[in-house]
Amino acid sequence: MFFLSVRLDNVYMFRDFFLDFTMARKSSHFLAKHDALFEGSKIYVRKKLLILGANASGKTTFGRILCAIQNYLVGREMGTQINLLEKRYDQTKPGMFQVDFAIGEYAYRMRCVYDERGVKTEGLKVVKIFPSYTNKVLCKRLDDADYVTEYERPVNAPVPTILGKTGMVSSLLLRQENETYLTKFRDGIQFSYIFSDFASTQSSLHLQESVERLNHILPKIDNSVERIVSLKSEDSKLISHSYVIVFKNGQQMTIPDGDLNRADRTRLSHGTYEALQFLDFLTNVKNNPEMVAFIDEQLAHLHAELEAYLIMKALLVQRNGQIFCTTHNPELLDLNIAPQMVLLFRRTEDGFNEALYVSDRIKKNDRGFKGYYDNDFFGVLPDYSVLDKYFEED
């Protein structure tokens, strides 16, 4: 699956929001050489995105919304962590999301309107994508197409609940007559999201890297580490995935079954834990090349140069799926990335979130666009001068 565009209204702090992931023309940048929707297609999609923004500008929230939408598209109930019903800005009005996405040579548009009782109306459009289509042609085809299936909630419909709370699940996709679409979506939609504030509540975090690679990587990240040793069973028929981290002072830390959340996390620095978590996620990205991957500020406690190095490694992975990386660190703009790969989030004066691509303001592949960012050419840097009076001496 590829996100082609997302439209939001009255969802969190997004009001009349629209973001297009397609590009009008092919980029010559080496990181964008596989950005055609499929081989021979004239539709080009941003498959690698670096997302920057100040605190509360909407980066993490946008990731949560994308995650909620993908769960919705495969017929899952939105759980307590991400429940869009509770996140309508104006509680007296419905929320709405509309997503255009592609699976193989077909494009889909799903529109959903919901209120405090759950899904109110839904509609699905389907268009075959021909190699001659540009992104503008495809968008017009979707605009002009009729809905192949629709849903409107009956007046006396029961309210779905999740753990005692009003829940949200697609009524349209769970209809028996739409089983073909749901099967298509479940087969074609893979995703993995890792959020900074969800990290400590993950049920498990298994190291997938080999001991050899961990021995090359971890001591460079944390110089208190001497080596990593794999625990082996005396019974040759039993396979063990447990490790021991040996520190230079002689102390040891066991990682049962390779699960970091079952180890003594206080023994590792926050930055080291983040780096291991990032490496685990990166391995998952490599092993699932069609997956949508969203990495939310996972390296905030690392040195800026190491964060930039690891993010670049993630962007260099040869894969077909989309990958989103969020950060607060403007030093990442010094990486060799194209302006159309950088998405900036900001808050408007009335408090709503909006986004723009660097390429919206810079029309050439100018690698010096960090200077534009530092001088607030894009208008995304927060103004803290209003706080000066609170720190001035009496």
Score class of each variant (00 low, 15 high):
Asp20Glu: 13
Leu31Lys: 12
His34Ser: 14
Gly40Pro: 07
Arg46Asp: 07
Lys47Asn: 07
Gly53Tyr: 04
Ala54Ser: 03
Gly58Asp: 00
Leu66Ile: 15
Cys67Ile: 07
Gln70Trp: 06
Gln70Thr: 11
Glu77Tyr: 15
Asn83Val: 04
Asn83Leu: 12
Asn83His: 05
Thr92Glu: 13
Arg111Ser: 12
Lys128Glu: 13
Lys128Gly: 01
Val137Pro: 03
Val137Leu: 11
Arg141Phe: 05
Glu150Met: 06
Pro154Met: 13
Lys165Asp: 10
Lys165Trp: 05
Gly167Cys: 07
Val169Arg: 09
Glu179Cys: 00
Glu179Gly: 00
Arg186Thr: 10
Ser196Val: 10
Leu207Cys: 10
Asn215Tyr: 06
Leu218Glu: 01
Pro219Thr: 04
Ile221Arg: 04
Lys237Gln: 05
His241Ile: 00
Val244Gly: 02
Ile255Pro: 06
Gly271Met: 06
Tyr273Thr: 12
Ala275Gly: 05
Gln277Met: 14
Leu279Tyr: 12
Asp280His: 08
Phe281Leu: 09
Asn284Lys: 14
Ala293Cys: 14
Ala300Leu: 14
His301Gly: 03
His303Pro: 01
Ala304Met: 05
Lys313Tyr: 06
Ile323Ala: 09
Leu332Cys: 11
Asn336Met: 08
Met341Ser: 02
Leu344Asn: 10
Tyr357Ser: 00
Lys363Tyr: 14
Lys364Val: 15
Gly368Gln: 08
Tyr373Asp: 00
Asp374His: 06
Asn375Trp: 12
Leu387Thr: 09
